[in-house]
Write a protein that binds this DNA or RNA. Structure first.
Length: 273
DNA sequence: TGTGTCACCTGAGCGC
DNA sequence: TGCGCTCAGGTGACAC
């Protein structure tokens, strides 16, 4: 599932192919992927506009276009954005963009949760997820004290709080479980009960697991591929996620799986207190 | 206002 | 072999 490291890897692999390019034609096979504006206006605004930057905020890709427009893409659960020489033949191809150099940007999404927007740069606040998004965990304005304060303000389980994009941007189920294991914190602990020391351990762990995920070019269990269609390798470096019933790599105890906030949550009951 | 639950979706895996 | 059920999870909407 695309979380921050996966979206960042997609961004990095697409950037050299998209910078300075213009969309020549758009093929839309599933209109509801386009959330704003109306499909006809989306098409009119996007065609022949030069892509000036390829950025990321949390799990959103932000393609800045000439004329101060931003093309916003969220991959949600199974979205793939793949640059190719030919249009891909795939039953889950939802949109295809022919670029001015004759190459293609394919948007494949099996479960069709993905979303696209095209808005003037000063109207990005119309996307609620962007407007309310918390600090970027790999940026210089993410501080332990602020992170602790955000945790302290919630009585929810700490795992649930880590998934809240208004608290910290970009974490999903995989990296939240991994960060909690690295920090030695039980996922069901009330966030507001974490000590300053524990919050700082978790802060470091969040940064570490995200950096490792980027270094390994993302985690591929089934659907995720980068902008070139290649799988990541971080699934071979995970400690707890998708390892329930197996031995903990640290203590040898059995990894357990519970549900928190409706999400499967893997952890080591011996190592995480 | 904070929190929990559900719907959106499709395919894989499982039991019968 | 085929059917039905459950599970996977990011986010917004809704209820309390």
């Amino acid at each position: 599932m695309p979380e921050l490291p996966e979206v960042e890897t997609v961004r990095r692999t697409l950037e050299p192919h998209l910078l300075g390019r213009r969309v020549r034609e758009i093929y839309i096979y599933l209109e509801r992927i386009v959330k704003k504006p109306e499909v006809a206006e989306f098409r009119r605004l996007l065609v022949n506009r030069t892509i000036e930057t390829v950025d990321r905020r949390g799990k959103y890709l932000l393609l800045r276009l000439e004329g101060n427009y931003t093309w916003v893409i969220h991959l949600r659960m199974t979205g793939q954005l793949i640059h190719t020489g030919e249009r891909l033949e795939d039953r889950h191809l939802r949109l295809a963009f022919l670029l001015d150099d004759g190459t293609w940007l394919n948007f494949i999404d099996m479960r069709t949760f993905g979303s696209m927007y095209l808005l003037p740069g000063d109207r990005l606040d119309e996307i609620r997820g962007l407007k309310t998004m918390g600090p970027e965990p790999l940026s210089s304005d993410f501080f332990p004290a602020d992170f602790h304060a955000r945790l302290s303000g919630s009585s929810r389980p700490v795992k649930t709080v880590l998934l809240d994009q208004t608290v910290v941007a970009g974490l999903g189920n995989i990296y939240a479980d991994e960060a909690l294991f690295l920090a030695g914190i039980h996922p069901a602990r009330r966030a507001s009960f974490l000590s300053e020391n524990e919050a700082e351990r978790l802060y470091r762990a969040v940064i570490d697991v995200l950096r490792q995920g980027i270094k390994n070019r993302g985690t591929t269990f089934r659907d995720y591929v980068d902008g070139a269609g290649k799988s990541g390798s971080n699934q071979f470096s995970l400690s707890v996620y998708n390892r329930s019933g197996q031995a903990c790599l640290r203590c040898g105890g059995e990894i357990e799986k519970i549900r928190l906030g409706g999400r499967g949550t893997s952890f080591c009951p011996r190592c995480q207190k």
